[in-house]
Amino acid sequence: MPADTNPAGDIFGGWLMAQMDLAAGSAAARRARGRCATIAVEGMAFLRPVAVGDEVSLYAEIVDVGRTSMKIHVAAWRRSRDSEETFKVTEATFTFVAIDASGKSRPVPPRS
């Protein structure tokens, strides 16, 4: 939306990062079967701008699971509304920790 843009009319990087965090958080919560918290983001570089009206697709993949944490790689791609061509705009690895109801870390359950 226009309210999410910088003075040049491109989408703020922070808005895109928030969407990526939501995608990673969804993958983390499913894998951990419960609440998770973001603790780190690694390697984000913005390769191309995203314009108002572009379709943004996010792809999240769990790349590592530790005792209480998970690393999730997220790639963001854009497609102009009048084209079929897609471009990667950024990617990053998000680290999440599984947490209990009191906010303390808890073990990630084994994969079922």
Results as ranks from 00 to 15, higher is better:
residue 51 A to Q: 11
residue 56 V to F: 01
residue 54 D to P: 13
residue 23 A to Q: 06
residue 26 S to C: 15
residue 22 L to V: 14
residue 20 M to V: 08
residue 40 A to L: 00
residue 36 C to E: 01
residue 39 I to C: 12
residue 42 E to K: 13
residue 56 V to L: 01
residue 43 G to C: 09
residue 52 V to Q: 01
residue 45 A to F: 14
residue 36 C to P: 09
residue 12 F to R: 14
residue 43 G to T: 11
residue 47 L to W: 09
residue 51 A to S: 12
residue 58 L to T: 10
residue 52 V to P: 08
residue 16 L to W: 00
residue 44 M to K: 02
residue 45 A to E: 12
residue 17 M to K: 06
residue 33 R to H: 06
residue 46 F to V: 00
residue 54 D to H: 13
residue 46 F to P: 00
residue 36 C to S: 04
residue 32 A to P: 03
residue 43 G to E: 05
residue 38 T to Y: 12
residue 40 A to W: 00
residue 40 A to T: 03
residue 28 A to G: 08
residue 44 M to S: 04
residue 19 Q to D: 03
residue 38 T to A: 15
residue 11 I to G: 06
residue 22 L to D: 14
residue 45 A to S: 15
residue 26 S to M: 14
residue 44 M to V: 12
residue 26 S to F: 15
residue 58 L to E: 08
residue 31 R to V: 07
residue 41 V to I: 14
residue 57 S to C: 02
residue 24 A to P: 07
residue 45 A to I: 11
residue 36 C to F: 02
residue 26 S to Y: 15
residue 20 M to R: 06
residue 27 A to Y: 02
residue 46 F to T: 01
residue 55 E to F: 01
residue 29 A to I: 07
residue 28 A to S: 10
residue 24 A to H: 07
residue 46 F to E: 02
residue 27 A to T: 12
residue 31 R to C: 07
residue 21 D to C: 05
residue 52 V to T: 11
residue 56 V to R: 01
residue 38 T to M: 04
residue 30 R to D: 03
residue 11 I to F: 11
residue 48 R to L: 06
residue 18 A to E: 07
residue 58 L to C: 07
residue 48 R to F: 02
residue 49 P to F: 09
residue 32 A to D: 05
residue 58 L to A: 04
residue 39 I to Y: 12
residue 46 F to K: 01
residue 14 G to L: 00
residue 20 M to Y: 03
residue 28 A to R: 06
residue 29 A to R: 10
residue 51 A to N: 11
residue 46 F to L: 07
residue 13 G to V: 13
residue 43 G to K: 15
residue 47 L to C: 08
residue 34 G to K: 10
residue 40 A to G: 05
residue 17 M to F: 09
residue 57 S to F: 02
residue 35 R to L: 03
residue 41 V to K: 09
residue 16 L to Y: 02
residue 48 R to K: 14
residue 26 S to Q: 15
residue 32 A to R: 00
residue 42 E to D: 15
